[in-house]
């Protein structure tokens, strides 16, 4: 039970960071925390229901998070080459 509450609070912390940050790398760190809270819930239920599928889905989430971080950082670096800053206000290239 305490692990579920921990997962909820961790998700809330990550969501708070993603909403209140303006730096893109800060938002990526917050996204990592949110994904980690989901993994924590999977592992807890895997132990609680005595089923190993939760751990396997946790592994899948880790792989997807790794790909997400790689793509996000590539976008940040290619944006930084043009604009020389990484604040969220500067990114309106794809807005109409």
């Amino acid at each position: 039970m305490k692990y579920l509450i921990t997962g909820a609070i961790l998700f809330g912390i990550g969501l708070f960071g993603a909403l209140s940050r303006r730096n893109i790398i800060g938002i990526l760190i917050s996204l990592e925390l949110m994904l980690n809270s989901v993994i924590l819930n999977f592992v807890f239920f895997s132990r609680n229901l005595a089923d190993l599928s939760g751990q396997i889905f946790a592994l899948f989430i880790m792989v997807i998070a790794a790909g997400e971080v790689a793509v996000g950082l590539a976008i940040i670096i290619s944006f930084y080459h043009g604009a020389k800053k990484i604040d969220m206000e500067g990114i309106s290239l794809m807005k109409w």
Binding site: I25, I39, V43, A58, L73
Partner: peptide, 22 residues
């Protein structure tokens, strides 16, 4: 929580790779 292999994978992927990338 008993997920020993997942703990090791978490250390390798997150601390070893992802934070270094960040």
């Amino acid at each position: 929580l008993g997920a020993t292999l997942l703990a090791a994978l978490h250390l390798m992927i997150y601390v070893g790779a992802m934070v270094v990338l960040i």
